[in-house]
């Protein structure tokens, strides 16, 4: 197993009295609001009062990965302005957290604004992907969820290789009441989404997604879970086209589900 990248290891867990902000991410905010809603419900259930600073927008990853990193600079600045005052920032997206922790630093360093680079470096370690926040900061694995379904988990590339969340999401899922968690073959293979790759190299992207979808179907799962809705939209789009009836769901939504309020 490879070591985590030095520059992206989250700082030490904190205990109580924290000011916690939700970074919903622009895609979730606009297209998949159920995910940040579930994150809010879940965190509140665990006794964390979470804030949604309304001036947040987007981490700029799409710009950066498309070759427009300098255009992302205002968004990097906005991110530290909006979130710099919080003890912890939590986001239900491995990909966007990867962008904040790894790419923001590079963009800020390449700008002429030294103080921005310092602020970005200071904030980065306090920005957590959901499973990191639950396991490392809150120190919980059993979040009291209930989800009596057959589920398989796809680890998305950025959570796996940029953030190194490792088996944190699986540990959280294993503790869910009634869940039948089945292993996904070749789980660590990329699903082929890759942002604009899904359009610019659509044939390869679909070929990769189809192999992933085939493995998902093979598990007999009713639900495919992952920590990134963009990857889920891609794999889910293929599963939908094949009319498999398999439901793509974000990790937050499963962890928020209880016997009283099923997902």
């Amino acid at each position: 197993m490879l070591e985590p990248r030095d520059d992206v290891v989250p700082s030490e867990p904190r205990t109580s009295g924290q000011r916690v902000a939700l970074f919903a991410t622009c895609f979730n905010d606009t297209l998949w609001p159920e995910t940040p809603k579930a994150t809010v419900h879940l965190l509140e259930r665990l006794g964390v009062s979470v804030d949604f600073p309304a001036d947040q927008t987007c981490c700029g990853q799409m710009l950066t990965n498309s070759g427009y990193g300098s255009s992302a600079l205002p968004l990097v600045r906005r991110f530290v302005d909006v979130f710099g005052g919080y003890d912890a920032v939590v986001a239900p997206s491995g990909s966007c957290v990867g962008s904040v922790r790894v790419q923001h630093r590079r963009i800020a360093e390449e700008s002429d604004d030294d103080s921005l680079a310092d602020r970005v470096a200071e904030l980065g370690p306090r920005v957590y992907e959901l499973s990191e926040f639950l396991v490392d900061v809150l120190g919980v694995e059993d979040v009291g969820a209930s989800f009596p379904h057959r589920v398989t988990y796809h680890p998305t590339c950025h959570s796996l290789r940029m953030l190194r969340v490792d088996d944190r999401p699986l540990r959280l899922l294993r503790a869910v009441r009634g869940i039948d968690l089945v292993e996904l073959p070749e789980a660590q293979e990329c699903c082929g989404f890759g942002g604009t790759f899904a359009l610019k190299n659509a044939d390869i992207s679909i070929s990769m997604g189809s192999d992933k979808a085939r493995h998902v179907v093979g598990t007999g799962a009713e639900v495919l879970v992952a920590g990134d809705n963009s990857c889920l939209a891609h794999i889910g789009g293929i599963l939908g086209r094949w009319r498999t009836g398999i439901r793509p769901m974000h990790l937050a939504e499963i962890l928020a589900a209880t016997e009283g309020t099923p997902a």
């Binding site: 905010d29 159920e34 940040p36 659509a202 939209a233 939908g240």
Partner: peptide
């Protein structure tokens, strides 16, 4: 390029921030 082989997610009736 997307919809040749993939369905699109349905847009939600309201955004998270509205909620």
């Amino acid at each position: 390029a997307w919809t040749n082989a993939r369905d699109l997610p349905n847009p939600p009736p309201e955004s998270f921030r509205t909620w």
